[in-house]
């Protein structure tokens, strides 16, 4: 099971989300697919450039090398932005549903 690393699972999650975006016609499922793609990206970024045996980048550097702090700092902002995007999508979905009574992208649900 050596090949199951965070990067590979992140790439697979991204493409599972992309498949959901391409095939599902329900708007809720589209928003969920976007969230799945986002989680794949977070997982890919926080595990990239990881050296076994490294320590968190806090305090003075000892013998062990530091973990790369750049992806963590990027992902902190990306998670909050992901919450914002999901909230915007759900609010617009509720508006659309109340105004037109439609929960799918087209009237043909098949």
């Amino acid at each position: 099971m050596d090949f199951i690393t965070g990067e590979i699972v992140g790439i697979l999650l991204f493409f599972i989300g992309l498949y959901g975006l391409m095939t599902k016609k329900s708007i809720i499922k589209t928003i969920m697919s976007m969230s799945i793609m986002e989680s794949g990206i977070y997982l890919f970024y926080v595990t990239i450039n990881y050296v076994p045996g490294s320590v968190p980048p806090i305090g003075q550097q000892g013998d062990a090398p530091f973990v790369d702090p750049v992806p963590s700092a990027l992902m902190i902002t990306a998670i909050v932005i992901g919450i914002g995007v999901t909230a915007i999508g759900l609010t617009m979905f509720m508006h659309y549903k109340q105004k037109h009574g439609i929960t799918h992208w087209s009237r043909n649900r098949n």
Partner: peptide, 18 residues
């Protein structure tokens, strides 16, 4: 810009609501 993004989404949730 992250703070701006969160604020814009909050304004959207409040104002673009049925």
């Amino acid at each position: 810009f992250e703070a701006l993004m969160l604020m814009v989404s909050v304004m959207e949730v409040i104002n673009v609501s049925w």
